[in-house]
């Protein structure tokens, strides 16, 4: 990294190394480990595939064309976007009140509550999917309880449906939304809310006119983060959606296992491209509104 460094003068503090010594190793690792591989993957996605010869060197858009002309793959694509949108919207609605209370509470239990939100984050998606599996199975808690209560007579089949996947992904993403919103809300001085109240704004008005616009950058960040995570979910759709249900990330892996690397690479790029595109669009839209 060519860095024209200018020390901050007298406040140079503890630094006696040049910028390139300090940031060089980390930058090199990430550049080598992310940008290089992605470029190779992009090149692969333009190759051809032959069932006998596997990957064949070529320069064709065939894989991308196949994806957008085949109803099955398009279906996978739209399922993924739909599931991601639904999950993100529900995460926002469910997450905001919890984030707000966590940000404003002054009880001793605040840390415990936050740890309660954080632990599931680190537990792994497969483990959490397993939790839903015990709940959703045809002889699981939910189905049996519904029958015991006489609400249903048949076992409820939620496993291996889109609903199960949506419920599972929301549980995975909700902590991210809550933590992002919480940190933003904590940065908004409570006096601003009180100022609005004292000027005659009822809670809903206060929310619309003060809290929402001020929290918007954080809301955008949380929404984008959960959206990305939902788009790229792997373990949850695999375990809760079953073999028939397909989202983009599992599709990449299954095509990879079928040895069709060029097509898998193309799907991977479409997944990443869509995610990035929608993310940029969302952040531009919120920025516009924030200025306006």
């Amino acid at each position: 990294m060519a860095a024209t460094l200018s020390d901050e003068g007298p406040r140079g503090g503890a630094l006696i190394f040049s910028a390139s010594t300090l940031i060089g190793p980390a930058t090199a690792i990430v550049a080598l480990g992310v940008i290089g591989p992605l470029l190779i993957l992009l090149r692969y996605s333009l190759n051809d595939f032959d069932p006998r010869l596997l990957m064949v060197e070529a320069f064709t858009a065939k894989n991308y064309v196949t994806f957008f002309t085949d109803a099955y793959y398009l279906g996978v694509f739209f399922t993924t976007v739909r599931v991601a949108l639904i999950c993100t919207a529900i995460c926002l609605v469910l997450g905001f009140p919890l984030a707000y209370l966590l940000a404003r509470t002054q009880t001793r239990f605040k840390n415990l509550l936050i740890i309660g939100v954080v632990i599931p984050l680190f537990v792994g998606n497969a483990v959490r999917a397993a939790g839903w599996m015990t709940l959703f199975g045809s002889r699981g808690f939910l189905s049996v309880t519904l029958m015991d209560l006489g609400i249903t007579t048949e076992p409820t089949e939620i496993m291996f449906t889109e609903l199960a996947v949506i419920i599972g992904i929301i549980a995975v993403n909700l902590p991210y939304m809550v933590l992002t919103l919480q940190s933003v809300l904590e940065g908004i001085n409570r006096n601003l809310e009180e100022a609005a109240f004292s000027l005659g704004a009822a809670p809903v008005t206060m929310f619309v006119r003060v809290l929402w616009p001020l929290a918007l950058p954080g809301i955008a960040a949380g929404t984008i983060l959960t959206f990305i995570l939902a788009m790229n979910a792997y373990a949850t759709p695999v375990l809760l959606g079953g073999p028939e249900f397909r989202m983009m990330a599992p599709l990449v892996y299954s095509q990879f296992q079928l040895n069709n690397w060029p097509f898998a690479a193309a799907v991977a790029f479409l997944l990443m491209g869509t995610t990035l595109l929608l993310t940029i669009a969302a952040s531009l839209a919120t920025r516009q509104r924030f200025r306006g």
């Binding site: 100022a195 609005a196 004292s198 005659g200």
Partner: peptide, 18 residues
């Protein structure tokens, strides 16, 4: 508070930054 018609000036002013 919003039904009291009092004008409050806060120590840190609490002006809406947006």
């Amino acid at each position: 508070p919003w039904k009291r018609n009092t004008g409050l000036v806060f120590q840190n002013y609490a002006l809406f930054p947006h």
